[in-house]
Each structure stands twice: as structure tokens, then as C-alpha cells.
Design a protein around this nucleic acid. Structure first.
Length: 948
DNA sequence: CTAACGACATA
DNA sequence: GTATGTCGTTAGC
């Protein structure tokens, strides 16, 4: 196998684009003002591949003139891509010159895409006994993978992964790489404009593949499908076959693989030097020289591509401290590292580790002594339950050295468990030992129930990653796979799938508990080492240390506190709602002439538009149903009594099912209160989100809805609720950030900002502004925050498209700095690849330079909105931390209970009310200094509604 | 039991 | 036009 010749085929544009975006945060502009990012990026990748792999044969493939055949088949093919960025356009001739100087063949064929060229060449090379590696991140290539053809994919964060048949099978859940074509054909690909089958996404495509194996077989057996899906697919047979064709990489491009031509040769160094000097690539030149130096080439190891592992090899099992561990005498679980197999992810089985459980008694004492001598320890609690309030400790895992760790099992008996935790108290309450964890809020809450406070510096890997890349997911399994190329033991393996037969951690054998729990701690520790550096690189260390980490303790306290709920009140409300809903139901049935399920949009649509024919040409949703959304129905309300009844029915049903009936079921029996869970790492802008239950969307707009707020009450008669909310914080932020004086002075003068805006854009004195004018101005003000378009505005108001456009134009004339700010934000995003808040919280916008105008437009709106929404989030988080600290320091009985994006709710001990009102208002208004004053409204009451 | 969708609650 | 979470229906394992 090792004497098999290896051919590397590089997908030029894919790497050029990738290289270009890699530098987008910090574009390379040379002294002549030329953006050389794309060239630099591409050359880095190319040299990297050469250095790592030392290919025998190599060629670089380009597109030319797009795929004539595919456009003929489907005119929309790649149609929604537009202009290539300037830097890439100028890059191509340079790159081709460099490749010529390097004696690397450039493969292009007019009318074909690089995919087709690469596909054709790899199949030819395969026949001649070559092993081919297609260097590209593009998943479409997976269809070409065979025993001798591999994908060689650059991965996020550096390094490469090789996809052979096994990887492709696993990734796409297919039995044969060719099925990738069927997969892509079924689910479609928006970036290539491959339409795909309607109603089929990733999941369904995988399912179909498992069942039918191919597009054709699926289409031939649509009689086995049912209902909607059947209808959809039977109606789209041609589309399906077309999609499959579009996704198929052609293998008959008129090009020839010529082994001699493709041999990787010594470059024409003087020529390369000349070009590099022109581009001012000094660093790259020396790198280049090293790569091609005689020494480097002759020292090239025999590594085959299977050994392209970028991550460190497993740590040695033996270590200096290993001897003492036998003292503990508990379960020893460890595994020898088998020969590295880089085709699959590492797991506990393939990685050497030393995970040990600690027996009770002497071993525990020795362990704790060791623990206390550490300066930084990763820990992870294992419990009986995901609800930290009722969860009992089953064990705690600790790790402070990669690949090694200990598990302390907890007795089931409550007193004994408490005794053990008492032994650990000095550790958790130590101010000097740093604690590392993944989602520490959970562990802190669990431990709080054992009356243990976690003190000292914290490092939460989930929070760290949230700041590094807020758009990704942050659960440990994903992080381990992404950053450590490691698949942790799945919880399902231990306790079974969710539902009927699930057991708890307590029922898992100790050695399994140990493996699982210590692995988590070990991985978390490794992730910490990874993220520590990246936090600094993303310039977000401060945000981590001063906002997110301190906030975690605040949130834990708020969640544990919970809020008191008047269940009786809600039950009464529920009964009243039931009566009203029933009566509406009766009316609707009478008006419709039959009974049906009003809550079913499908049935409702059929009744309204097929049976009653209320409209000539009803709108349809993307799935072909009649659209019955509120905005459509409300237009019809004045003509047909049934419509208003339906809208009322919907409103009341939503109210009843989501709030009035659901909230009482969420009361925690052990505390008698409702404990929401604030998610600190889901909202890409930096906001919190709330669930189980979501207390951030309790109704307020309608009279009926806001009654629900009456159910949120103080803990007892010695307390009242205080609601403190920022007035117009987002508009104040955009006024300040854009330095728009007109708006700033309106705020400074305490004007009604929407009326003030209306007065200016409609050119009337502020006291003559009509309700409608104010309302339109308000809509534009909000539109600005969301990234306006005339289209969106006319949808939201009674204005026509052209009136909307005019209003927006006048608006920008009134507030010229605002327009400037918006375009500067978009430019910043284009140049840097991200935007940021006042505190430097970043949001990366990969689509900002997308060739697809729709996708790009969305990214541009994000570029405007994210800094505003995010800065508001930053500011209230600062305020929360400050207030929490003051409440603690002052030993107040008052507790902070809720956060609703721009509002905080407190359970205030009546004697403290005056002090608290001042404290809260002061801290909130001074949390962050802007050119515009922040203004906070306070409300006090015996329920949340009254407090407003 | 899960996924996809439509509808709708908040800031 | 931004950012979320939850519920009910429908359909298919």
C-alpha cells in the first residue's frame, strides 16, 4: 500500500474562497493597496498540503465558464450567486502564475466545473493504480469516494480530515458513497440552487435512503408513501430526477491524467520569488523555501495520508504520580492506546487514559488531600436527574491532568452523602483553587442544594465557546468532536434512550460511571486548554471574566430562587377561558356549517377557502396549504364574522394552553415556586433565553393576555414585586453608536422618541403629530434596529411600498448619521467577518459576502441588529452582576427573580423598598456609559401586572 | 416517540 | 426586517 502512488487534486476555487474568508477578519492589503488575502490563503493551504503529505503527483483544478450542461438542464442552477469578490478575481491570475512557476499543472476545461474535472481525473488515476486525494471542503465530492479515492478536507481550526468510504457512509448514513448523489438530490442544496424534493430535509432524505436506496427507487415506490408526503413527491418526480442530475459530478470531461505531467517537481524558485516579492509575501516565501529545501524533501516521513491526524497523540498512561494511585484501591479503568486509526474519531477505547474511582474511607481522605494541593481542577457532577433542584448527587468526577482523573461515588443515603460533601467543602469553597467545568451553572445549583457554595475563579468551557463562536452549539459532545476529534461515551449508552426504560445514573455500574464521568471531566479540561488561547485571540477574555462567568452565579441564584405563582387565580382564569372558547367554538361551527378542528390550520384552511370561498385567490404556504396566519386573516375580519371568532379562538387557546394551564404544572413541588432555566449560550446576539417555562414571553399586549401576569406574585405579604425596565434601550444605543445628534438630543431632552421622529419626518410640530404618524414613525424606528427594507415596512404598516420607501428616505435625511452608521457596520462586517457589541462581543457573519443576495441580505441585517441587541444584552448583564453583588454585600432580603431582556423583576422586602428602588435604578442607569442617558422606569405592585 | 410545520407569545 | 420558546396538528416511524 505504501508504494502506491498518491495523487492530490486541489479544488482551486473552494480553497481560494476558504483562504479569502480565513483572512477576512484581518485582510492582507499590501503597500500597493492590493487585497492579497485570497492569494495568501490559497498558498498557505497549498504549501500546507505539500508539507504534510509530500504528494507524488499534484494538480490544481479550476472552473471555467460554469457548467454549460447543468445550466441547460436547469436555468436557475447557481443563478442566485452573484459577483465574485474583487480580491478573488484578482487572485486567480496570480495564483495561476505561481502554479506555473511551481511546475504544477493547472487543469481547466471551458464549460466544466472543477468538480467534474477532479471527478474525471480521479477515476482515470484510479484505473492506473493511484490513490487520489481530492483537496476540498465541499461535501458534494463525497460521491466520488472509493477504495482509492479520498476526500482530503481542511477542517475548522486547522488540520485536515480524510474521508474514505467508511467516513462517507457514516456522515451521510449511506451504504455506498454514490448514494450521496441521491442524498443531495433529495434534500437539495440552496447554495448551488439544486431544488431537491419538496418537504424533504436532511432527516427525511436519510430515511428515504435507508429505505429505498436511491432517488429512482423512491420515485418508483411512491405508492408506499402516505398523505402529504406522497402527494408532494409524486408531484415532483421530474424535479427529483433533475436534482439528482444536477448533483452528479460528471466523469467524462475531456481531460487526460498524465502521470508525468502531474509529478510534483522542484519549483522555479527565482520566478516564484519574483512573484512573492511583488505581492510582498516575505513570510510565505521563507516558508516556501523551507518546504522545498533539499533537506525538507528528503526528510519527508513516510506518512501516508491516513496519518494526517492533527491532534496530539494520546498521553502516556504512565506518569510520575501513577504509583500513589494504587493507594486508593478502587476500580481502575484504563485502556492501552491501540494503533491510531485516523479514519475514525478517537474514543475512550482508542485513547490511553487513567480513570479511577476512589473508594470510601482512607482513599477518599488521601484523594482530598491531593485535590486540595491543586491550583486548578476540572469537575463534573453526576446526578439522578436533570433538574438540579431535585437532583441527588451520584458522584463527582475530577481531573487536573489530561488523560487522568478520579471519580468519587456518592452514597444514596442522604446523611452519608452530606457527610461526604462536607469533606469536599474546603475544595469547593476554596478561593484559590480554580474550578473548571462545562455548564457550571448546573453543578453550582446542584451543590447549592447541599448547602455548598462554589467559590474561587471559574472557567466554564461552554461559556468560553459561546464567546468564541456564538452561532455554534456548545454541548460537550459537539465540542469534543470538533476540537479534540474525540467522541465521548454517550449518556444513552449508559442510561438508555429517553422515555419508558430510562434508568438513572445511580443504576449504572460503578466502572461505567467512572469511565463516563471522568471522561467528561478530562475532556472538559482539554477543551479548557484549547479555549483559553482562543478567548484571547477573539479579544473576548474580558467579556468572559467580567460578564459571562460572574453572571453564571447570578443566574444560578435567580433560578434557585424561583417565583411565586398564584395557582388558584390561574385555575379560575382557565375556567373562564374554557367557557369563552367553547362559546366561540359553537359560533364557528354554526358559521362554518359543520364541526371541525379549528386548531388545525389544514382543516381550517379547507373550510374557509374551499367550502366558504371567502377569498378568490387565497394565499398558500410553502407546503401548499392555505395560509391562515393572523396577518392574512385580520384583513378578512371585517367582511366575515367567522374570521374574528377564529382569531379570538386562537388567541384564547394559545393563552390557555401555553400559559394559564401550563404554568401551574411547572411549579416545583419541593419549593412551591416556578424555576425557569436561563440559557446563557443559545442566543447568538448575547441575550439570555428562558425555558421550562419560558418566562420571557408572558403576554402583555392584549388585555386578556396580560391577566396572566397577575398570577406572578411576591413570596408573601411582607414582599412586593418591583419591575425595572430600560426605556427604549436599543434606540438609545443606536443613537449613541451612530452619534446621531438629532436623536441624541431628543433623548437628552426626555422627548417621546417616536413622536419626535414623527414630527421630524412628517415635518409637523411635535404637539400636532397624529396617532398614525407616531405609529408609523415607531415602526420605522424599530425597523432601523432590525435592518429595514421598504418591503418589510409596508408589510407592517398601512403604507404602500413606494410610500414606505419615501418614508425611509425621509427618515435617513432626518437622521443622516444613522444611515452612515448602518453602512459602516455592513462594511465592517465585510472587512472583518464579524460585528461586535460595545463590550466586544462578536458575532461572525460568514454570509456577509455570500454570492446569494437573499442570504447576504440577511447577514447585512444581522450586521446592523446584532451590535444593538447585543449591546443592550451586555448592559443589562452588567447591571445584573452589580445589583446581585450589592444585594449580597448589603445582606438584603430582596431577591432578583427574572430578566426579560430589558427588564428585571425583584421580590422586594417591603422595609427595603426605598433603598432597593434607588439601588436598582442607579445601577441599571449607570451600568454602562453612553453618549445617551439610559433611563429606567420602576413599577411596584402586588403582582407583576400591577408592577408595570 | 420524533420531526416538520404553522401559529403565536415576548423583547 | 432582529432575537427567542412553546403548543397543537399531522405524519411516519
Amino acid at each position: 500500500m505504501s508504494d502506491q502512488k498518491r495523487l492530490f487534486l486541489v479544488d482551486a476555487y473552494a480553497l481560494i474562497f476558504r483562504g479569502y474568508y480565513a483572512f477576512i477578519k484581518n485582510p492582507r492589503i499590501n503597500s500597493k493597496g492590493v487585497d492579497t488575502s485570497a492569494i495568501m490563503g490559497f498558498m498557505n493551504s497549498l504549501l500546507d498540503v505539500i508539507k504534510r503529505e509530500r504528494p507524488d503527483h499534484l494538480a490544481v483544478c479550476f472552473d471555467k465558464g460554469g457548467s454549460a450542461d447543468r445550466v441547460e438542464m436547469f436555468e436557475a442552477y447557481k443563478a442566485n450567486r452573484d459577483e465574485t469578490p474583487e480580491a478573488i478575481k484578482i487572485a486567480v491570475p496570480y495564483i495561476q502564475d505561481i502554479l506555473k512557476a511551481m511546475h504544477i499543472p493547472i487543469m481547466v476545461k471551458e464549460g466544466y466545473e472543477a468538480d467534474d474535472v477532479i471527478g474525471t481525473l480521479s477515476k482515470q488515476a484510479e484505473k492506473e493504480g493511484y490513490k487520489t486525494f481530492m483537496v476540498t471542503p465541499d461535501k458534494d465530492f463525497a460521491q466520488l469516494v472509493s477504495e482509492n479515492i479520498f476526500m482530503y478536507r481542511p477542517v475548522f481550526g486547522g488540520g485536515y480530515e480524510t474521508w474514505g468510504i467508511e467516513e462517507v457512509k457514516k456522515k451521510f448514513e449511506v451504504t455506498n458513497p454514490l448514494q450521496v448523489i441521491d442524498f443531495l438530490g433529495m434534500m437539495g442544496d440552496s447554495s448551488d440552487n439544486i431544488p431537491g424534493l419538496p418537504g424533504v430535509g436532511e432527516k427525511t432524505a436519510k430515511k428515504f435512503l435507508a429505505q429505498y436506496g436511491s432517488m429512482e427507487n423512491l420515485l418508483a415506490n411512491t405508492h408506499e408513501l402516505k398523505g402529504k408526503m406522497k402527494e408532494n413527491i409524486e408531484g415532483a418526480k421530474e424535479l427529483g430526477l433533475l436534482s439528482k442530475k444536477l448533483a452528479t459530478i460528471m466523469l467524462d470531461v475531456p481531460v487526460t491524467f498524465d502521470a508525468k505531467d502531474f509529478e510534483l517537481d522542484q519549483p522555479n524558485l527565482p520566478k516564484v520569488t519574483e512573484i512573492f516579492m511583488e505581492l510582498e509575501f516575505r513570510q510565505l516565501l521563507s516558508n516556501f523555501e523551507k518546504t522545498f529545501s533539499v533537506e525538507a524533501v528528503s526528510n519527508a516521513s513516510e506518512t501516508t495520508s491516513e496519518n494526517t491526524e492533527t491532534k496530539a497523540t494520546p498521553k502516556e498512561t504512565k506518569s510520575a504520580g501513577a504509583g500513589q494511585f494504587s493507594l486508593f484501591g478502587g476500580d481502575i479503568s484504563s485502556a492501552e492506546a491501540p494503533k491510531e486509526n485516523t479514519f475514525t474519531r478517537k474514543t475512550a477505547e482508542t485513547t490511553s487514559h487513567f480513570y479511577q474511582s476512589v473508594a470510601s474511607g482512607m482513599a477518599t481522605k488521601l484523594f482530598i488531600k491531593n485535590l486540595m494541593s491543586q491550583t486548578s481542577v476540572c469537575f463534573d457532577t453526576e446526578t439522578t436527574n436533570i433538574n438540579p433542584i431535585t437532583a441527588q448527587l451520584v458522584g463527582i468526577a475530577f481531573s487536573w491532568e489530561v488523560g487522568k482523573g478520579f471519580y468519587l461515588p456518592f452514597p444514596e443515603n442522604k446523611d452519608e452523602a452530606q457527610e461526604l460533601i462536607e469533606q469536599l467543602r474546603p475544595f469547593f469553597e476554596s478561593e484559590t483553587i480554580e474550578k473548571i467545568g462545562q455548564n457550571l451553572k448546573y453543578d453550582i445549583k446542584v451543590l447549592a442544594k447541599y448547602n455548598v457554595t462554589v467559590k474561587g475563579k471559574l472557567f466554564d468551557t461552554m461559556l468560553a465557546h459561546y464567546l468564541i463562536n456564538p452561532d455554534m452549539r456548545h454541548n460537550m459532545d459537539v465540542l469534543a468532536e470538533t476540537y479534540l476529534n474525540y467522541t465521548p461515551i454517550s449518556i444513552e449508552e449508559l442510561i438508555g434512550k429517553k422515555g419508558k426504560n430510562q434508568i438513572t445514573m445511580r443504576d449504572v455500574a460503578l466502572d461505567k460511571q467512572t469511565e463516563y464521568a471522568v471522561e467528561d471531566a478530562d475532556i472538559t479540561l482539554q477543551l479548557k486548554e484549547h479555549f483559553e488561547k482562543e478567548l484571547g485571540e477573539a479579544n473576548t477574555q474580558k467579556l468572559f471574566d467580567e460578564i459571562e462567568v460572574p453572571l453564571l452565579r447570578v443566574l444560578a441564584a435567580m433560578e434557585l430562587e424561583g417565583i411565586n405563582l398564584d395557582e388558584n387565580f390561574l385555575n379560575t382564569l382557565s375556567e373562564q377561558l374554557e367557557i369563552d372558547i367553547k362559546s366561540l367554538e359553537t359560533k364557528i361551527y354554526a358559521e362554518a356549517g359543520e364541526e371541525f378542528n379549528i386548531a388545525s390550520p389544514k382543516q381550517l384552511g379547507d373550510i374557509l377557502f374551499d367550502k366558504l370561498k371567502l377569498v378568490d385567490k387565497p394565499k398558500k404556504t410553502k407546503t401548499g396549504q392555505y395560509a391562515t396566519s393572523e396577518d392574512i386573516l385580520s384583513y378578512l375580519a371585517k367582511d366575515h364574522a367567522i374570521i374574528q371568532h377564529i382569531l379570538d379562538f386562537r388567541g384564547l387557546s394559545k393563552l390557555k394552553s401555553t400559559y394559564v394551564d401550563a404554568l401551574p404544572t411547572q411549579v416545583e413541588p419541593s419549593t412551591g415556586r416556578v424555576h425557569t432555566d436561563y440559557m446563557q449560550t443559545v442566543a447568538a446576539t448575547g441575550r439570555l433565553s428562558s425555558n421550562n417555562p419560558n418566562l420571557q414571553n408572558i403576554p402583555i399586549r392584549t388585555e386578556r393576555g396580560r391577566q396572566v401576569r397577575k398570577a406572578f406574585i411576591p413570596r408573601n405579604e411582607d414582599y412586593v414585586l418591583l419591575a425595572a425596565d430600560y426605556s427604549q434601550i436599543e434606540l438609545r444605543i443606536i443613537a449613541a453608536l451612530s452619534n446621531e445628534e438629532t436623536m441624541i438630543s431628543a433623548f437628552k431632552n426626555g422627548e417621546d422618541i417616536h413622536a419626535s421622529t414623527a414630527s421630524k419626518v412628517f415635518n409637523v410640530p411635535i404637539e400636532n403629530v397624529t396617532r398614525e404618524q407616531r405609529s408609523n414613525a415607531k415602526t420605522v424606528n424599530f425597523g432601523i434596529i432590525y435592518g429595514v427594507s421598504a418591503f418589510g415596512l409596508s408589510n407592517q404598516t398601512d403604507l404602500s411600498r413606494s410610500e414606505s420607501k419615501e418614508l425611509i428616505d425621509t427618515y435617513y435625511e432626518t437622521y443622516p448619521k444613522l444611515r452612515k452608521y448602518i453602512s459602516e457596520q455592513i462594511d465592517f462586517a465585510r472587512d472583518n467577518g464579524y460585528v461586535q457589541t460595545v463590550l466586544g462581543r462578536r458575532r461572525y457573519l460568514n454570509d456577509i459576502n455570500s454570492r446569494n443576495a437573499v442570504v447576504r441580505g440577511a447577514a447585512e441585517r444581522n450586521a446592523v441588529n446584532a451590535p444593538i441587541q447585543g449591546s443592550a444584552a451586555d448592559i443589562i448583564k452588567l447591571a445584573m452582576i452589580k445589583i446581585y453583588e450589592k444585594l449580597q454585600a448589603g445582606n438584603f432580603k430582596t431577591k432578583m427573580l427574572l430578566q426579560v431582556h430589558d427588564e428585571l423583576v425583584f421580590d422586594v422586602y417591603k422595609p427595603e423598598l426605598d433603598t432597593i428602588k434607588t439601588l436598582v435604578k442607579t445601577e441599571m442607569e449607570n451600568a454602562y456609559k453612553l453618549e445617551v442617558p439610559l433611563d429606567v422606569d420602576l413599577g411596584v405592585g402586588n403582582d407583576w401586572l400591577e408592577a408595570h
